[in-house]
Design a protein around this nucleic acid. Sequence first.
DNA 1: AGGCAGGCTTTTA
DNA 2: TAAAAGCCTGCC
Length: 273
Amino acid sequence: MYEMIVTDDFDLDLIAESGQCFRWKKLDENIYRIPYRSKCLDIYYAGDGRYELSCDDDEFDSIWRDYFDLETCYADIRTRINKADDPFLFGACEYGRGIRILRQDPWETLISFIISQNRNIPAIKKSIELLCEAAGKTGRSADGNSYYVFPAPEDILSLSENDLSECRLGYRCRYVHEAAKSVAQGDIDLYGLINSPGVETINSLTSICGVGAKVANCVSLFGLHHIDAFPIDVWIKRILENEYPDGYPMEKYSPYNGVYQQYMFYYYRDAHE
DNA sequence: AGGCAGGCTTTTA
DNA sequence: TAAAAGCCTGCC
């Protein structure tokens, strides 16, 4: 058990519901189970900024500190927005106080957001879980329960066409398979993109069949931690049209556009869904 | 050449 | 029945 104390913005429910991660499982009030690569963490919020994590000090230092992006102060980013200057974004920041941008696995993020296109969140989660089950790699959580590990590119390539289609991916089946091939063959070096300039990263990602501008920006933001990436989905498009008819000040909010995008997305979708 | 309409699997509300 | 954290193809 590791006890973590957080003074910065950190709200498990908001992070889980902000649409950036699809495999967090809420076990109970204030408890989430989080699979990540070959690990699986149970995290419990005990109140007053205190969290109990089902890992030891070494695992926390080598994995989870980074995963939760604890070195970044989100309160600083959030409070850069002035109420009089940008009332809409200010409101979104207040509403989404507690959201962070996780440092998720690039490969899992790529596949997850390819699957996400033209679907709502429950459907996305279902397909991803089916895909993990189909590949069938399991690990053990701290309490001894087994969970499914997200399949590697090779694991997906070894699935039959029928196995893959049973994940209810529809027309995205081909895209998932193509992406697995690109990464397995080394056409795309996802981990190399972590330190590549934003434009180069987007160009590289959109060269994958099934990855357009929106998905590429989601992968940049949520998988490569390029926090200036700005995915424009149906909700953000409505926000830009309705709240910023004279243009959105992207330059002014650089290099944190992705963080603000996440506050706005969560705020607007919650209010209008 | 570059912009746009239409189609796409399936689930969810 | 329409809409869903969109993208590809073909047409002009």
